[in-house]
C-alpha cells in the first residue's frame, strides 16, 4: 500500500511537471496514469483528474490574474458556455459505456499528439500549447486587443466544457486555439486565460463525480498534492530548458498511452 502511495505521488508529480512544461495541464496524463497504472475505474479517474485540474489551475491562475497575463473579462465571457457544457457532461457521463469514453480518450490523445507535432516546428511563442512567456511580443505589456466572434467562441466553449467533464481533461488544448484563432486573442493572453477558465470548467464537471461518490479521497488527495508540486516545479524549469525534444518525447509517450487506451477500450467492448 505504501509502495502504491509512493508510485501515485511520483506519477502525479510527473504528470503535473509534464503538463506545466508543455502548457497542457496534467489532466491528459492523470486519467491514463490511474486507469492503466493503478486499475482505477474510468469514472473515478476522470473525477480525480478534474479535481487535480482545478488545483493546478488555481495555483497558476492566481499568479496570471494578478500579473494581468490572464484576461478575466474574456474568461468570464466564455465561462457560462463552458460551465453549462461541463455540467451537462458530468450529469450524463454515467450513461456512456466505459469502452466508449476510453476510446474517445484515445482519440483525444491522438489529436493532442498531432497538435504538438505541428507546433514543434514553430517558434515557442507561436505554439498553441507552449508555456506563457511574459516577455513575448504579445505578452502582458502588449497594446490592447479586441476579441472577435464572441457568439461562435461561446458555442465552442460549450463543447469544450462537455469534453472536459466526460474525459477528465481541462480542455486547454482546444480552448487556447479557440481564443487565439477564433477570437484573435494574443497567444500569451489566450494561454493564461485558458488556464484561468479551465479551473471553472473542471470544477463544474467535478461536482457530479464528487456527489456520486466516485472520487476516493485516499487517491484524489495525494494526486492533488503531487500534481500541484509537479506543476510548480515544471513551471519553474520550463524557461530553463529547450522544449523541442521534450515535445517529441511527450508525443511518443501519449502515442503509447493512446494505444493502451484503445486496447483497453477494445477489451472492455468485447
Amino acid at each position: 500500500m505504501e509502495t502504491d502511495l509512493l508510485l501515485l505521488l511520483l506519477g502525479g508529480a510527473a504528470a503535473g511537471a509534464f503538463g506545466a512544461l508543455l502548457g497542457l495541464g496534467g489532466g491528459v496524463l492523470i486519467v491514463p496514469l490511474l486507469t492503466i497504472g493503478f486499475n482505477v475505474p474510468l469514472a473515478a479517474a476522470v473525477g480525480t483528474s478534474l479535481i487535480s485540474v482545478v488545483a493546478t489551475s488555481a495555483g497558476a491562475a492566481a499568479l496570471n490574474v494578478r500579473a494581468r497575463r490572464a484576461d478575466v473579462r474574456l474568461g468570464i465571457a466564455l465561462a457560462p458556455g463552458t460551465v453549462l457544457g461541463a455540467a451537462a457532461g458530468g450529469a450524463i457521463a454515467w450513461i456512456f459505456p466505459e469502452y466508449l469514453l476510453t476510446g474517445a480518450f484515445a482519440a483525444l490523445m491522438v489529436y493532442i499528439g498531432v497538435v504538438l507535432l505541428r507546433s514543434a516546428g514553430r517558434s515557442p511563442g507561436a505554439s498553441d500549447g507552449a508555456p506563457i512567456d511574459p516577455s513575448a511580443p504579445d505578452g502582458p505589456g502588449a497594446p490592447a486587443y479586441r476579441a472577435h466572434r464572441l457568439p461562435l467562441a461561446m458555442g465552442g466553449s460549450l463543447g469544450v466544457g462537455m469534453l472536459s467533464s466526460l474525459l477528465g481533461v481541462g480542455g486547454g488544448i482546444v480552448q487556447v486555439p479557440l481564443m487565439r484563432l477564433v477570437m484573435g486573442a494574443p497567444m500569451a493572453v489566450a494561454a493564461a486565460t485558458s488556464n484561468y477558465l479551465i479551473g471553472i470548467t473542471a470544477a463544474a464537471g467535478a461536482y457530479a463525480y464528487l456527489l456520486r461518490g466516485e472520487v476516493d479521497p485516499g487517491v484524489a488527495g495525494p494526486m492533488v498534492l503531487s500534481v500541484t508540486i509537479g506543476a510548480v516545479s515544471g513551471a519553474w524549469v520550463a524557461p530553463r530548458i529547450k522544449a523541442g525534444w521534450l515535445t517529441l518525447l511527450f508525443v511518443v509517450v501519449i502515442g503509447w498511452i493512446a494505444l493502451q487506451m484503445a486496447l483497453r477500450a477494445l477489451e472492455l467492448a468485447t
Binding site: I51, V54, A55, A58, G199, I200, A203, A204, A206, Y207, L210, V215, P217, A220, G221, V224
Partner: peptide, 10 residues
C-alpha cells in the same frame, strides 16, 4: 480540502 478546492472557482 477537496471540497474547498472545487468551491474556489465559485
Amino acid at each position: 480540502g477537496l471540497l474547498l478546492l472545487v468551491l474556489t472557482p465559485m
